[in-house]
């Protein structure tokens, strides 16, 4: 494929290739999160999907709100132990980071990266729940999100993150709207003066995508990671 004329989209097959490359890269980055796992699409007899259909899943993640100066450190090293002491008291601090934790009274997050056949890009679905499994509404968990996301939410309530049906699980999940994805993906991938091969693009696609989307939910990928991949 000619990368210069590339429109920023992925085919379903390329999504799977890119997703698996991303999951592998994720593990080597050692950011302190559990690995993403590939979930093959559940069998729906009438619309049996081709084998390559499925989504990426990162589940039971805890969002907490560390002090501003700790953010960078936490991303790299936190394993969760300290996080229990770092609780909801610090509501006035905007930055958030994600940490795995076994604390019982806390809020957990599930993230799924699902391919959209309409937009031909990855889409982030998420849900939040208490340790007893009770699902949380956006109003209840938006305080965990970074300040810029909260601001965007108040500005565009219906076009930024909305509740929609998970395409595979058919249950209400929150979805980050993908309308502008191709535009900024083209900028991210092709903005560089060196034009990479499509295989390289594919390798980097989900990592680049997640470096933007992750920020909405407070997961940051260190800047040097992306440039190192080039």
């Amino acid at each position: 494929m000619d990368v210069l004329n590339w429109d920023g989209t992925l085919s379903a097959k390329d999504f799977r290739i890119g997703a698996i490359a991303f999951a592998q890269k994720w593990e080597t980055l050692n950011l302190g999160y559990p690995p993403w796992s590939w979930v093959p699409s559940p069998k729906h007899p009438p619309l049996t999907s081709p084998q390559e259909e499925g989504y990426l899943s990162l589940e039971k993640i805890r969002i907490s709100r560390p002090k501003q100066e700790d953010v960078d450190q936490n991303i790299k090293t936190d394993t969760g132990e300290e996080e229990t002491s770092c609780s909801e008291k610090e509501d006035d601090i905007d930055d958030a980071t994600l940490v795995q934790s076994s604390h019982h009274e806390l809020q957990y997050y599930d993230f799924h990266i699902v391919y959209s056949h309409t937009f031909r890009v990855p889409v982030l679905y998420l849900r939040a729940y208490r340790s007893d499994g009770r699902p949380l509404l956006l109003d209840e968990f938006e305080k965990d999100l970074p300040a810029c996301s909260v601001k965007e939410l108040s500005k565009s309530k219906w076009t930024f993150i909305t509740q929609e049906e998970h395409p595979y699980l058919k249950r209400p999940w929150y979805k980050l709207h993908p309308c502008g994805t191709v535009e900024w993906m083209k900028l991210l991938i092709l903005g560089d003066t060196s034009q990479p091969k499509f295989e390289v693009v594919l390798e980097l696609y989900l990592l680049s995508w997640f470096s933007v989307v992750g920020q909405v939910i407070g997961i940051r990928i260190p800047v040097n990671v992306l440039s190192d991949c080039r």
Partner: peptide, 25 residues
Amino acid sequence: NVLIPCEGEDSIKWSFINSLKEAAY
């Protein structure tokens, strides 16, 4: 757990607009 919450007409309107948006794409 099964149905997306419906906050009245606004929810329905935006579900419609978002569907239209997807179709337009």
